[in-house]
Design a protein around this nucleic acid. Structure first.
Lengths: 242, 242
DNA sequence: ACTTGACACGAACGGTGTTCGTCACTAAAA
DNA sequence: TTTTAGTGACGAACACCGTTCGTGTCAAGT
């Protein structure tokens, strides 16, 4: 279609100059959410942007950096309380954890890119500052608070990682609803466990139903309370400044 | 060189029939230990065995199965107590966890292949039966014991996974001693944290030393005690059968 | 109007997992 | 002893991957 001559054909749009780091990150995140971690490749992102893979390298140093950027972009969606309230540290830590869990569930596969990196992104630091300040202000010695924060973070991302692998498996099996996957998967596992020789695996065999019960949310919540209680047991009873 | 005719050239050795699943798994594990997860490819294994990649597929359905087999092979190295002793459940669970941690540290990168699969291999089941029986026999309701075991396993493999990523990073940086890596890495991180704006990240900035202190062992042990204490808090005070 | 510099991008390199078709060989059947 | 069936080995190829190089093209600065 020829350009209408009345506007001097003065660039109907920046000819192809629409590429930017933000656009690339956003596109990558969309692919991650829609098609999963394994489908996220430089070529796929480039294709989505109607260009070649080489074009991305002007805005992003490589796939690793892209993953880090996507991860921090996702972390930007976690909402923190206005101010930490040390007196309610346990509730706030629980709320924070559930919030992180929520975000990781919405962007399932981002956890696959997360376990790798040390918190260095903007939003990673925001979350760290909140958690750490909360624990310290609640009276925990700074050295110990650092350990507690580290382990809690590991739990959050570890759980999300495990979840994303299930999600990937479901996708690979061509299923679309979590329920369908859950049913098929649990069915398979229980059948296998039930077929185990009872003399070698008496406990596993006897409690198949209990072992396969509970969805991801239950398991996550249980582990979270486990950690929170463990932290509470170590928290000095009296606040530092009464 | 022509074959000397006096021995009818009757196969000086099994012509090439030395391949087997066990041999493939063992070779894969060796590569994993020596060169890391990223270096483990079908082609690499085949090369080590002086053959082509296609030859492996007669003994192993694909890379996924190979990784599962390697994982279970590594799990076979964990040593369990003769019999569970419910009265000492906490000590035994701690010993078990440290044993798993030890094995995962010896085969650093195997954790990268671990988080994926549901316990279905021989040795995976052995470990599960031990842990689960211990908790149940100590008086924990079976449904809850299932959750506790699941979360503890997640912690063990999650920690190992994180550790293996550090190891990979060290390898990529061309370093060979953990101390060298640790020094360089921690130095970089502390410098970065120290440069943070104090008005936005006061706590992180003020306690850089605490945040970067503690090696992997300290962190692992702390998280382990966190979980064990959490479990203990949920354990019925009186044993089921006094 | 000319130069400069940043960006877009086609082509290619060396890797990956996996499949197909073919060959050599063993072991059982005739 | 000969034939046949079947299994494992494996070269070649397919369709991908991340990344780099060299070239082209455009917008802004001189």
């Amino acid at each position: 279609m020829p350009a209408p001559p009345w506007r001097k054909s003065r660039r109907p749009a920046p000819p192809k100059r629409q590429l930017s780091q933000e656009l690339i990150v956003e596109t990558g995140l969309r692919i991650l959410d829609d098609e999963g971690f394994d489908a996220l490749s430089m070529r796929r992102v480039a294709q989505e942007l109607d260009t070649g893979p080489a074009s991305l390298y002007a805005h992003v140093s490589g796939k690793e950096e892209l993953l880090e950027l996507i991860y921090d972009r996702v972390l930007s969606e976690i909402h923190l309380p206005e101010r930490p309230d040390p007196a309610r540290w346990k509730e706030q830590l629980r709320e924070y954890s559930l919030e992180v869990h929520r975000v990781f569930r919405e962007h399932a596969d981002v956890a696959r890119a997360a376990l790798a990196n040390i918190p260095t992104g903007e939003n990673s630091l925001r979350a760290g500052e909140f958690t750490y300040g909360l624990l310290v202000e609640a009276g925990m010695p700074p050295a110990e608070a650092s350990l507690a924060m580290d382990r809690l973070s590991l739990y959050l991302v570890g759980d999300a990682y495990e979840g994303s692998l299930h999600w990937a498996r479901m996708r690979a099996a061509g299923m679309s609803s979590p329920e369908e996957y859950f049913q098929a998967f649990v069915g398979q596992i229980s059948a296998y466990y039930r077929a185990l020789p009872a003399e070698r695996f008496p406990y596993l065999q006897a409690h198949v139903a209990d072992l396969t019960a509970g969805d991801g949310e239950d398991r996550f919540a249980y582990g979270l309370e486990l950690m929170l209680d463990g932290i509470e047991a170590r928290m000095p009873k009296k606040p530092a400044r009464p």
